[in-house]
């Protein structure tokens, strides 16, 4: 444990450098650069608002905000786990030649996605200002659901990155799973638009809890109950525990499969 910490401290600069590399490579030669991280969710929101509030006519007050908060939280989870999948495989040239703690690579993707989410929250703030929605003190709790989602995504990311080394099928399968998972999460529809048994089913979905937690404190000015918090924490910790255990067990043979 102590050597683990020492090792991490030695390689923390690598972590920062990999993140800044990702940012640089992502926005190299684009005129607007980082602004895209804010602009993209806003444009997406315009499309979704046009489609869902005009065509499907869900009865959601302040749909732009409802959608944007949901899609920001979801977007973080989906980007983090999706980029984790390839993280070990695409670092194979490094892993084969230098000793580096291998969890650095999925961890870097998760932190990168998290930074992206922070920028997307600027878009959320802009919509708050434009729609004139009042914010109360409950909004100060925003780090809480962020950290829940971060831990949950980190566990999933570690798990997926390790398994994908052995089974490349996950690469192809996960895209489908993510799409199904997205529809299974109330991002652009209200949960009460569903029949009751579907509502109960959706409550198994951890992302449902993280998304509605964020909406509760930002839009509805309510503090989620102790029970909700416990559910969120348990999902996050179980995911992290499974992720770390599987990753630790599989990592020493990565090099034979990449």
């Amino acid at each position: 444990m102590k050597t683990d910490v020492k090792n991490f401290l030695k390689y923390r600069y690598l972590l920062f450098n990999l993140i800044s590399r990702d940012i640089k490579v992502k926005y190299r030669r684009s005129v607007l650069g980082l602004v895209w991280s804010i602009l993209n969710p806003l444009l997406m929101m315009l499309v979704m608002t046009a489609v869902f509030s005009q065509i499907f006519k869900f009865d959601i007050p302040n749909f732009p905000l409802y959608y944007l908060i949901g899609s920001t939280v979801w977007g973080f989870f989906s980007e983090a786990t999706n980029s984790c999948i390839m993280s070990i495989l695409s670092a194979s040239s490094l892993i084969k030649k230098v000793y580096i703690p291998k969890y650095i690579f999925p961890l870097e993707k998760i932190v990168f996605a998290f930074v992206n989410m922070l920028f997307s929250f600027i878009a959320v703030a802009i919509i708050f200002a434009i729609t004139g929605t009042p914010l109360t003190w409950t909004a100060l709790l925003i780090p809480v659901p962020m950290i829940y989602t971060l831990i949950f995504s980190a566990g999933m990311g570690l798990l997926l990155s390790a398994l994908t080394v052995y089974f490349r099928d996950i690469l192809h399968l996960y895209g489908v799973i993510l799409t199904a998972w997205m529809y299974f999460t109330p991002i652009f529809y209200p949960i009460n638009a569903l029949p009751e048994f579907m509502q109960n089913l959706i409550k198994i979905n951890p992302l449902y809890h993280y998304v509605s937690y964020t909406r509760d404190i930002l839009m509805y000015n309510t503090v989620p109950s102790l029970e909700t918090n416990l559910i969120c924490i348990i999902y996050a910790l179980v995911s992290l525990f499974v992720g770390i255990v599987v990753f630790k067990k599989l990592q020493k043979n990565f090099i034979l499969y990449i």
Partner: peptide, 10 residues
């Protein structure tokens, strides 16, 4: 980047 890969500090 490569320096930090080798464990050097910035």
């Amino acid at each position: 980047l490569n320096g930090t890969v080798l464990g050097l500090s910035p």
